[in-house]
Amino acid sequence: MSLIPTASQTVGPFFNFALTANPSLGILARAGARGERIRLAFRVIDGDGAPTPGDALIELWQADARGRYGHALDPRSGDADPNFHGFGRLETDAHGECVFETVKPGPVSDGGGAAQAPHINVTVLARGLLKPLYTRVYFAGEPANAHDAVLALVPEPRRATLLARPVAGQPDTWSLEIRLQGEAETVFFDV
């Protein structure tokens, strides 16, 4: 039997009472979580430079501070940080922004013996998106970025769209703008 996966449809503008009513889904690192705690701020803007006012949501999936995913397919999952939950989900506010509380992930195996640079997997859903957009967050200044196989797939001038940068005057806070379309459009992936 070979079935065809069900077609995607937009999440629409009215998801928040079902999907993002629980703001604790923005907190991946609970008390006692290992590693470097960070706040990761996103801003989502469209092709006109306008923010997505409450009608987009961002989901994160990431490894813990030592690069372990809390999932059975990670052979080290048994040793994953019990105080870290790798999934987060927030809606963007009236300014197109949301902020997650997490830890900086460790390097993750690519499954073949090489390490991937620390990164966070991101899904963007919104009114006007008929299917999810997938991207990754890397960290500016991270030496391992130079050897990351996924970053190497991205034309060099566009790599900066994937790099979160420290926010001046706000310790431990990183930010990234997700530009859906147009100048400096974020790199999205076909997964």
């Binding site: 989901e59 999932h71 059975a72 990670d74 993750v108 690519d110 992936f189």
Partner: peptide
């Protein structure tokens, strides 16, 4: 979709541990 659809084609990713695991 007119101002929200990306203009650039998505870049095809190999499936690493990051794509093969997922929220539990």
């Amino acid at each position: 979709t007119i101002r929200r659809a990306p203009a650039q084609p998505p870049i095809r990713l190999p499936h690493t541990r990051s794509e093969l695991t997922g929220p539990v």
